[in-house]
Design a protein around this nucleic acid. Structure first.
Lengths: 325, 325
DNA sequence: TTTAATATGTCAACCGGTTAACATATTTTT
DNA sequence: AAAAATATGTTAACCGGTTGACATATTAAA
């Protein structure tokens, strides 16, 4: 593998000049540039990014920590972020915390050991303090850390509001909400708030089922939903915290001979690809995942460049009506 | 950030000894080990993996090149590989070629520039020769490169056989197969072979629709399926190359008022999570994705360690019968 | 013509860990 | 007591690119 020195020798220049060409630093003549380009081409020169990272003590890799890969929502996030990263010349070091604190911590260490330029965090098992001293930019998506890091989220509360209003407008009078609960506060918890507020304002009775999502890895929520529907048999409107759960709800309803949307109306969250593949297709709260990823990566880029970035960016959600309402 | 030198000073030893402890090289006493451990703990020492990679000219990162992230099949592959990599102390550099040759080539360069230990390749747009001189192990999944690299695949031909046999056993007499076609030969092409052989042997008429999957990114196959069903209205048995297409087929059938499985039986491929979330649930050919990922990462590990590895590993598939047949 | 801007060379330290050669000291074995 | 094994120190080169200080040469502007 050819090195910078080889290129310099081939071009009849010195490493200093070649490095200047590569990094666009100082004065360089067109002639020099051409000679360097020719030499690089001839030797099939590929800069050693590892050496570069070492001398700069920072790479152009971004650590992406998610709690889950095998989940449509995070899959979309990952896909979009990878694209945005690529556009900006960053690489993605993929880290799956599996929602386990130990693993998340370990991955944070791995990221810093590997001198990533920054971390995009979608996982939320680790307390804020851990991030205080890592010394690199952290941008969160749907995970609010109240310590000055840039956070990108959707208007979760509004999502809960839209869902409740829609169900009530559809004539539902016995609502049920399946939401999250965990050790750490998550923006998604606000969905419950919004939902609750509307129900109380409209005097519509509702139940809340807050789960710890133990089934995080397997994504099997069928049993949980079945128990909930049997426990609250009068339920005629259901708002769940993800399309995956909503899709499994439809399967459960089929099993229990509950017709959707006639007997039970269902609203999911996320609006991922899956929402159009169920029968009936899912009515859901649309998260602008593409935009969230785009903004997150822009924030990361700006942070890495030393710019001041907004602490919190909240994007709008909207109700996408399909066939379950 | 503390360095090796700091640790050595703190432990009252020299870098040589500390490095020996870290890499388990040469003679080390328990006392020295303890002192080093204590010093590392006290200074919160994290080895600089970049420096390590530079001096070893190889990192413990594996480049993972997929043609698609936003696709359930690759999502599963990625998820499993990430897990296996983690278990073995490797990191994943995620590369999405988007099925574009230029991007795939660029990502291969990025991988070598970053001195990855090896590449796991699930993408297939680049001709074999490109891999001949990159000098690091390459393991492929569902992508056979006939140049001595380790390949992991499922028994695609058998998948086609099972699908055809099942459809015929169900009484279908007008079969249709939607498969892939591309510039480069892919193992998935063998599904068509198997399917064709059975149909010919059993004298059951069949049509083949081989697409280039232009919709690779958007994953919208609805129109294609609709046109196919309108072009071959007598079709009563359909075998498609992925569960995603199968799921969209069900939506199309609903639109065209074709009842599944009564009027049309459908068999997908992959057996991803999605297959259980459609209505009716998908009968499909199960790929042992977990095992494939496990084996692929083992092969990678062995290759990196300089071992001789089997050139080709073919895993069995099986028909999972659900509700579309 | 003098000054200033542009362009490149030279040299060397640096990023942080790896590794090999060689010396030396302490233990253990023969 | 001598030989061998174990343990650590010293030193320095190396991985490959970055960067800054300083010198020098060529052009261009004043």
């Amino acid at each position: 593998m050819a090195t910078l020195k080889d290129v310099a020798r081939e071009a009849g220049l010195t490493v200093g000049t070649v490095s200047r060409v590569l990094n666009n630093r100082g004065y360089i003549s067109d002639k020099a540039r051409e000679k360097v380009d020719a030499a690089m081409k001839k030797l099939h020169y590929q800069p050693n990014e590892v050496a570069r990272s070492l001398s700069k003590s920072s790479s152009n890799t971004i650590g992406l920590i998610v709690p889950h890969i095998r989940h449509p929502y995070f899959m979309e996030i990952i896909s979009r972020l990878e694209y945005e990263a690529y556009q900006k010349g960053y690489r993605i070091l993929l880290c799956n915390s599996r929602n386990v604190q130990e693993k998340e911590k370990e991955y944070i260490d791995i990221c810093t050991s590997n001198k990533v330029a920054g971390i995009i965090l979608c996982s939320g098992t680790v307390p804020v303090e851990v991030f205080d001293k890592i010394g690199i930019p952290v941008v969160t998506i749907e995970r609010f850390l109240d310590n000055g890091m840039a956070a990108v989220e959707c208007d979760n509360r509004q999502g809960g509001v839209l869902a409740a209003e829609k169900l009530i407008a559809c004539g539902c009078r016995h609502l049920l909400h399946v939401g999250n609960i965990g050790g750490v506060f998550m923006p998604a918890d606000m969905r419950t708030e919004g939902f609750r507020e509307v129900c109380e304002r409209e005097h519509v009775p509702f139940e809340e089922l807050l789960t710890e999502e133990i089934q995080y890895d397997s994504m099997m929520y069928g049993d949980m939903i079945e128990k909930a529907l049997l426990k609250y048999p009068k339920t005629d409107g259901l708002f769940v915290n993800s399309d995956v759960i909503a899709a499994q709800t439809l399967q459960t309803c089929r099993k229990l001979h509950i017709s959707v949307p006639e007997q039970l109306k269902v609203i999911g969250f996320d609006d991922v690809f899956l929402a159009t593949l169920t029968t009936p297709q899912l009515t859901t709260i649309h998260q602008p995942i593409k935009e969230m990823a785009e903004i997150a990566m822009n924030l990361m880029h700006d942070s890495v460049s030393g710019k001041v970035v907004p602490k919190r960016t909240v994007l709008p959600v909207r109700l996408v009506e399909r066939e379950t309402t």
